Amino acid sequence: MSPSKSDEIKASALELIGNTPIVALDRLYQGPGRILAKCEFMNPGGSIKCRSALYMIQTARKNGDLKPGSPVVEVTSGNQGCGLAVVCAVLGHPLTLTMSKGNSVQRAIHMEALGAKCVRVPQVEGTYGKVTLADVEVAESEGLRIVEETGAFLVNQFHNDANVTSHYESTGPEIWRQTGGHVDAFIATVGTAGTFTGTSKFLKEMNPELQSFVVEPEGSEPIKGAPITKVCHLLQGSGYGAVPSLFKFEYMDGTISVTDEEAIYYKKLVGEKEGLYVGYTSGANVAAAVKLLNSGKLPKNAWVVTMLNDTGLKYTPVPEELTK
Protein backbone atom coordinates (compact mmCIF):
# COMPACT_ATOMS: atom_id res chain seq x y z
CA MET A 1 0.00 0.00 0.00
CA SER A 2 1.27 3.46 -0.84
CA PRO A 3 1.64 5.96 1.99
CA SER A 4 -1.36 8.19 2.65
CA LYS A 5 -1.16 11.71 1.34
CA SER A 6 -1.04 14.25 4.12
CA ASP A 7 -4.02 16.15 2.68
CA GLU A 8 -6.16 13.02 2.93
CA ILE A 9 -5.92 13.09 6.73
CA LYS A 10 -8.12 15.84 8.15
CA ALA A 11 -7.08 17.63 11.32
CA SER A 12 -10.65 17.87 12.62
CA ALA A 13 -14.32 17.82 11.67
CA LEU A 14 -13.97 21.47 10.67
CA GLU A 15 -12.05 20.38 7.58
CA LEU A 16 -15.02 18.20 6.60
CA ILE A 17 -17.19 21.28 6.14
CA GLY A 18 -17.82 22.38 2.56
CA ASN A 19 -16.49 21.07 -0.75
CA THR A 20 -19.60 18.93 -1.03
CA PRO A 21 -20.16 17.17 -4.38
CA ILE A 22 -22.76 18.08 -6.97
CA VAL A 23 -24.96 15.29 -8.30
CA ALA A 24 -27.01 15.34 -11.50
CA LEU A 25 -30.62 14.32 -10.87
CA ASP A 26 -30.88 12.70 -14.31
CA ARG A 27 -32.91 9.70 -13.13
CA LEU A 28 -35.50 11.90 -11.44
CA TYR A 29 -35.72 14.45 -14.26
CA GLN A 30 -34.98 13.75 -17.93
CA GLY A 31 -35.36 17.25 -19.36
CA PRO A 32 -35.68 19.72 -20.88
CA GLY A 33 -32.53 21.01 -19.25
CA ARG A 34 -30.77 19.48 -16.28
CA ILE A 35 -31.01 19.68 -12.46
CA LEU A 36 -27.73 19.66 -10.54
CA ALA A 37 -27.96 19.36 -6.76
CA LYS A 38 -25.31 20.25 -4.18
CA CYS A 39 -25.10 17.52 -1.53
CA GLU A 40 -25.08 19.67 1.61
CA PHE A 41 -26.35 16.79 3.75
CA MET A 42 -22.77 15.44 3.52
CA ASN A 43 -21.46 18.14 5.86
CA PRO A 44 -20.54 16.73 9.31
CA GLY A 45 -23.60 18.30 10.95
CA GLY A 46 -25.85 16.88 8.25
CA SER A 47 -26.78 20.18 6.61
CA ILE A 48 -25.71 23.29 4.74
CA LYS A 49 -25.69 25.23 8.03
CA CYS A 50 -22.26 23.85 8.92
CA ARG A 51 -20.82 26.40 6.52
CA SER A 52 -22.31 29.45 8.20
CA ALA A 53 -21.68 28.00 11.67
CA LEU A 54 -17.97 27.75 10.94
CA TYR A 55 -17.72 31.22 9.42
CA MET A 56 -19.74 32.94 12.15
CA ILE A 57 -17.75 31.38 15.00
CA GLN A 58 -14.38 31.91 13.30
CA THR A 59 -15.27 35.54 12.56
CA ALA A 60 -16.34 36.17 16.16
CA ARG A 61 -13.10 34.64 17.46
CA LYS A 62 -11.00 36.63 14.99
CA ASN A 63 -12.53 40.00 15.85
CA GLY A 64 -12.49 39.36 19.59
CA ASP A 65 -16.24 39.07 20.20
CA LEU A 66 -15.78 35.44 21.26
CA LYS A 67 -12.92 34.55 23.58
CA PRO A 68 -11.38 31.04 23.67
CA GLY A 69 -13.49 28.73 25.85
CA SER A 70 -16.32 31.25 26.22
CA PRO A 71 -19.95 30.07 26.06
CA VAL A 72 -22.08 30.41 22.93
CA VAL A 73 -25.88 30.72 22.59
CA GLU A 74 -28.05 30.56 19.49
CA VAL A 75 -31.71 30.30 18.51
CA THR A 76 -32.20 27.58 15.93
CA SER A 77 -34.69 25.47 14.01
CA GLY A 78 -32.13 22.68 14.37
CA ASN A 79 -29.72 22.69 11.46
CA GLN A 80 -27.78 25.77 12.52
CA GLY A 81 -27.67 24.30 15.99
CA CYS A 82 -26.19 21.05 14.70
CA GLY A 83 -23.60 22.96 12.69
CA LEU A 84 -22.67 25.09 15.69
CA ALA A 85 -22.46 21.96 17.84
CA VAL A 86 -19.85 20.53 15.45
CA VAL A 87 -17.81 23.74 15.45
CA CYS A 88 -18.08 24.42 19.19
CA ALA A 89 -17.17 20.82 20.07
CA VAL A 90 -13.94 21.09 18.09
CA LEU A 91 -13.05 24.61 19.26
CA GLY A 92 -14.02 24.07 22.91
CA HIS A 93 -16.97 26.42 23.40
CA PRO A 94 -19.87 25.40 25.69
CA LEU A 95 -22.99 25.71 23.54
CA THR A 96 -26.63 26.30 24.49
CA LEU A 97 -29.36 26.28 21.85
CA THR A 98 -33.00 27.25 22.11
CA MET A 99 -35.40 25.59 19.67
CA SER A 100 -39.14 25.33 19.30
CA LYS A 101 -40.68 22.03 20.34
CA GLY A 102 -42.30 22.08 16.91
CA ASN A 103 -38.97 21.32 15.29
CA SER A 104 -38.17 17.62 15.01
CA VAL A 105 -36.79 16.05 18.16
CA GLN A 106 -34.11 14.31 16.08
CA ARG A 107 -32.37 17.66 15.83
CA ALA A 108 -32.23 18.07 19.59
CA ILE A 109 -30.84 14.54 19.92
CA HIS A 110 -28.18 15.35 17.33
CA MET A 111 -27.11 18.59 19.01
CA GLU A 112 -26.90 17.05 22.45
CA ALA A 113 -24.93 14.07 21.12
CA LEU A 114 -22.27 16.63 20.13
CA GLY A 115 -22.13 18.08 23.65
CA ALA A 116 -24.51 21.00 23.28
CA LYS A 117 -27.48 21.79 25.52
CA CYS A 118 -30.80 22.14 23.70
CA VAL A 119 -33.62 24.01 25.42
CA ARG A 120 -36.86 23.01 23.70
CA VAL A 121 -39.40 25.83 23.97
CA PRO A 122 -43.18 25.17 23.84
CA GLN A 123 -45.05 26.27 20.71
CA VAL A 124 -47.54 29.10 20.81
CA GLU A 125 -49.05 28.84 17.34
CA GLY A 126 -47.87 25.95 15.15
CA THR A 127 -47.99 22.19 15.52
CA TYR A 128 -45.24 19.58 15.66
CA GLY A 129 -43.36 19.63 12.37
CA LYS A 130 -44.83 23.02 11.46
CA VAL A 131 -43.13 25.97 13.11
CA THR A 132 -44.35 29.55 12.68
CA LEU A 133 -42.65 32.91 13.13
CA ALA A 134 -44.45 33.30 16.46
CA ASP A 135 -42.94 30.00 17.63
CA VAL A 136 -39.47 31.17 16.61
CA GLU A 137 -39.93 34.47 18.44
CA VAL A 138 -40.68 32.63 21.68
CA ALA A 139 -37.54 30.52 21.26
CA GLU A 140 -35.63 33.73 20.54
CA SER A 141 -36.90 35.35 23.72
CA GLU A 142 -35.63 32.38 25.72
CA GLY A 143 -32.25 32.59 23.98
CA LEU A 144 -31.94 36.30 24.74
CA ARG A 145 -32.85 35.62 28.38
CA ILE A 146 -30.02 33.10 28.63
CA VAL A 147 -27.58 35.55 27.04
CA GLU A 148 -28.62 38.26 29.49
CA GLU A 149 -28.25 35.85 32.40
CA THR A 150 -24.92 34.30 31.40
CA GLY A 151 -23.17 36.87 29.21
CA ALA A 152 -22.68 34.24 26.50
CA PHE A 153 -21.92 35.16 22.90
CA LEU A 154 -25.07 35.26 20.75
CA VAL A 155 -24.41 34.01 17.21
CA ASN A 156 -27.47 35.84 15.83
CA GLN A 157 -27.63 34.00 12.51
CA PHE A 158 -30.54 36.05 11.09
CA HIS A 159 -28.52 39.27 11.33
CA ASN A 160 -24.92 38.03 11.10
CA ASP A 161 -23.14 39.13 7.90
CA ALA A 162 -20.69 36.22 8.23
CA ASN A 163 -23.67 33.98 7.41
CA VAL A 164 -23.81 35.52 3.92
CA THR A 165 -20.01 35.61 3.60
CA SER A 166 -19.80 31.86 4.19
CA HIS A 167 -21.75 31.19 1.02
CA TYR A 168 -20.15 33.99 -1.00
CA GLU A 169 -16.71 32.59 -0.22
CA SER A 170 -17.45 28.85 -0.30
CA THR A 171 -20.78 27.70 -1.77
CA GLY A 172 -20.80 30.02 -4.77
CA PRO A 173 -17.18 29.40 -5.81
CA GLU A 174 -17.61 25.64 -5.40
CA ILE A 175 -20.67 25.61 -7.69
CA TRP A 176 -18.88 27.69 -10.28
CA ARG A 177 -15.83 25.43 -10.23
CA GLN A 178 -17.77 22.17 -10.21
CA THR A 179 -19.98 23.13 -13.16
CA GLY A 180 -17.15 24.64 -15.17
CA GLY A 181 -19.04 27.91 -15.09
CA HIS A 182 -22.10 26.37 -16.72
CA VAL A 183 -24.87 27.64 -14.44
CA ASP A 184 -28.00 29.16 -15.97
CA ALA A 185 -30.07 29.41 -12.80
CA PHE A 186 -29.73 29.01 -9.05
CA ILE A 187 -32.63 28.03 -6.78
CA ALA A 188 -32.85 27.99 -2.98
CA THR A 189 -35.31 28.06 -0.10
CA VAL A 190 -34.87 30.99 2.28
CA GLY A 191 -34.59 30.83 6.06
CA THR A 192 -31.98 33.35 7.19
CA ALA A 193 -31.29 34.12 3.47
CA GLY A 194 -27.57 33.49 3.97
CA THR A 195 -27.40 30.75 1.35
CA PHE A 196 -29.47 32.56 -1.25
CA THR A 197 -27.84 35.97 -0.86
CA GLY A 198 -24.23 34.87 -0.63
CA THR A 199 -24.39 32.25 -3.38
CA SER A 200 -26.45 34.36 -5.77
CA LYS A 201 -24.16 37.36 -5.28
CA PHE A 202 -21.09 35.34 -6.24
CA LEU A 203 -22.69 33.53 -9.18
CA LYS A 204 -24.14 36.74 -10.63
CA GLU A 205 -20.74 38.40 -10.39
CA MET A 206 -19.35 35.53 -12.45
CA ASN A 207 -22.29 35.46 -14.88
CA PRO A 208 -24.56 38.53 -14.93
CA GLU A 209 -27.04 36.62 -17.11
CA LEU A 210 -27.59 33.95 -14.45
CA GLN A 211 -31.06 33.93 -12.90
CA SER A 212 -31.68 33.28 -9.20
CA PHE A 213 -35.03 32.15 -7.80
CA VAL A 214 -36.33 31.99 -4.24
CA VAL A 215 -38.38 28.96 -3.21
CA GLU A 216 -41.25 29.79 -0.84
CA PRO A 217 -43.93 27.56 0.72
CA GLU A 218 -47.31 28.22 -0.86
CA GLY A 219 -49.31 30.56 1.36
CA SER A 220 -46.23 31.99 3.09
CA GLU A 221 -44.57 34.07 0.38
CA PRO A 222 -43.49 37.45 1.79
CA ILE A 223 -40.58 37.78 -0.66
CA LYS A 224 -43.07 37.44 -3.50
CA GLY A 225 -45.12 40.13 -1.78
CA ALA A 226 -48.20 37.94 -1.37
CA PRO A 227 -50.49 37.97 1.67
CA ILE A 228 -49.64 35.33 4.29
CA THR A 229 -52.48 32.79 4.23
CA LYS A 230 -50.71 29.70 5.60
CA VAL A 231 -48.33 30.15 8.52
CA CYS A 232 -48.06 26.39 9.15
CA HIS A 233 -46.14 24.34 6.57
CA LEU A 234 -43.62 21.49 6.43
CA LEU A 235 -40.55 23.44 5.32
CA GLN A 236 -38.84 23.68 8.71
CA GLY A 237 -36.21 26.38 8.85
CA SER A 238 -37.67 28.41 5.97
CA GLY A 239 -40.73 30.40 4.94
CA TYR A 240 -41.32 32.17 8.25
CA GLY A 241 -43.66 34.76 6.76
CA ALA A 242 -41.26 37.71 6.90
CA VAL A 243 -38.46 38.95 4.65
CA PRO A 244 -35.15 38.20 6.44
CA SER A 245 -32.81 41.14 7.07
CA LEU A 246 -29.99 39.38 5.18
CA PHE A 247 -32.09 39.02 2.04
CA LYS A 248 -31.19 41.29 -0.90
CA PHE A 249 -33.77 41.74 -3.63
CA GLU A 250 -31.13 42.80 -6.16
CA TYR A 251 -29.91 39.20 -6.37
CA MET A 252 -33.37 37.74 -7.06
CA ASP A 253 -35.01 37.26 -10.46
CA GLY A 254 -38.23 35.67 -9.22
CA THR A 255 -39.93 33.36 -6.73
CA ILE A 256 -41.39 29.88 -7.06
CA SER A 257 -44.07 28.58 -4.71
CA VAL A 258 -44.15 24.95 -3.59
CA THR A 259 -46.91 23.13 -1.68
CA ASP A 260 -46.33 20.71 1.18
CA GLU A 261 -47.53 17.92 -1.07
CA GLU A 262 -45.02 18.82 -3.79
CA ALA A 263 -42.19 18.93 -1.27
CA ILE A 264 -43.17 15.50 0.05
CA TYR A 265 -43.47 14.07 -3.45
CA TYR A 266 -40.04 15.22 -4.61
CA LYS A 267 -38.38 14.36 -1.29
CA LYS A 268 -39.67 10.83 -1.85
CA LEU A 269 -38.61 10.86 -5.50
CA VAL A 270 -35.07 11.94 -4.66
CA GLY A 271 -34.86 8.88 -2.43
CA GLU A 272 -36.45 6.38 -4.79
CA LYS A 273 -34.82 7.58 -8.03
CA GLU A 274 -31.48 8.97 -6.85
CA GLY A 275 -30.81 6.98 -3.68
CA LEU A 276 -30.52 10.09 -1.49
CA TYR A 277 -32.47 10.53 1.75
CA VAL A 278 -33.06 14.26 2.19
CA GLY A 279 -35.35 16.66 4.04
CA TYR A 280 -38.42 18.64 3.01
CA THR A 281 -36.69 21.86 1.93
CA SER A 282 -34.54 19.72 -0.37
CA GLY A 283 -37.70 18.26 -1.85
CA ALA A 284 -39.07 21.77 -2.28
CA ASN A 285 -35.90 22.91 -4.05
CA VAL A 286 -36.11 20.03 -6.53
CA ALA A 287 -39.84 20.63 -7.08
CA ALA A 288 -39.08 24.28 -7.85
CA ALA A 289 -36.27 23.34 -10.23
CA VAL A 290 -38.63 21.08 -12.19
CA LYS A 291 -41.24 23.86 -12.33
CA LEU A 292 -38.68 26.38 -13.55
CA LEU A 293 -37.30 24.12 -16.28
CA ASN A 294 -40.81 23.33 -17.48
CA SER A 295 -41.87 27.00 -17.44
CA GLY A 296 -40.07 28.01 -20.62
CA LYS A 297 -38.27 30.83 -18.82
CA LEU A 298 -34.87 29.24 -19.48
CA PRO A 299 -33.17 27.82 -22.59
CA LYS A 300 -34.06 24.17 -23.24
CA ASN A 301 -30.51 23.07 -22.44
CA ALA A 302 -30.29 25.10 -19.22
CA TRP A 303 -28.50 23.81 -16.13
CA VAL A 304 -30.24 24.64 -12.86
CA VAL A 305 -28.28 24.28 -9.63
CA THR A 306 -30.07 23.83 -6.33
CA MET A 307 -29.32 22.58 -2.83
CA LEU A 308 -30.04 19.33 -1.02
CA ASN A 309 -30.05 21.19 2.28
CA ASP A 310 -30.04 18.39 4.82
CA THR A 311 -30.47 14.73 5.54
CA GLY A 312 -33.90 13.15 5.97
CA LEU A 313 -32.63 11.61 9.22
CA LYS A 314 -33.37 14.94 10.91
CA TYR A 315 -37.14 14.55 10.54
CA THR A 316 -40.02 12.68 12.09
CA PRO A 317 -42.06 10.90 9.39
CA VAL A 318 -44.97 12.94 8.02
CA PRO A 319 -48.49 11.74 8.92
CA GLU A 320 -49.78 9.29 6.32
CA GLU A 321 -52.72 11.48 5.30
CA LEU A 322 -50.31 14.09 3.89
CA THR A 323 -48.55 11.57 1.65
CA LYS A 324 -51.69 10.48 -0.21
Rank of each mutant, 00 (worst) to 15 (best):
V286R: 09
G64A: 11
L25K: 05
G180W: 10
K314A: 07
K300Q: 11
L269R: 15
L91M: 15
L298T: 11
L84S: 10
K117L: 09
F249G: 13
I223K: 05
V164I: 14
T132Q: 04
E261V: 01
L133Y: 04
L14S: 05
K201W: 05
V90I: 14
I9P: 02
E169W: 12
T197Q: 06
N285F: 07
F247W: 00
V270R: 05
G172P: 00
E205L: 13
E125R: 13
V87Y: 01
L14P: 01
G237P: 12
K291S: 11
P173R: 08
L28K: 04
E274D: 08
N301R: 01
F153G: 02
E125D: 14
G78T: 08
S70N: 09
E148D: 15
E205P: 02
G219T: 09
V72T: 10
K314G: 01
E272Y: 10
Q80I: 05
E148K: 15
E250N: 14
D135I: 11
G181C: 05
L203V: 10
L203G: 05
A226C: 11
V72G: 03
K314Y: 04
P21D: 09
V214C: 12
E218P: 06
K117M: 02
N163L: 03
V124I: 15
P173T: 10
H159Q: 12
D161V: 06
K67P: 03
S2W: 02
N19G: 10
T96R: 03
N309L: 04
E272G: 08
L313G: 00
L84K: 05
K314C: 02
N207F: 00
K101G: 14
D161H: 05
K204F: 07
K224Q: 14
V318D: 06
S4I: 15
E74Y: 07
M206R: 15
A242Q: 02
N43G: 00
K204L: 13
N163P: 04
V147T: 05
S220V: 03
M111Y: 12
L91H: 06
A113G: 01
D135M: 01
G126I: 11
H159K: 06
I256E: 01
V138F: 00
P227Y: 05
S47A: 15
I187G: 07
F41H: 01
G279S: 00
G275Y: 09
N285P: 10
V90Y: 02
G194F: 02
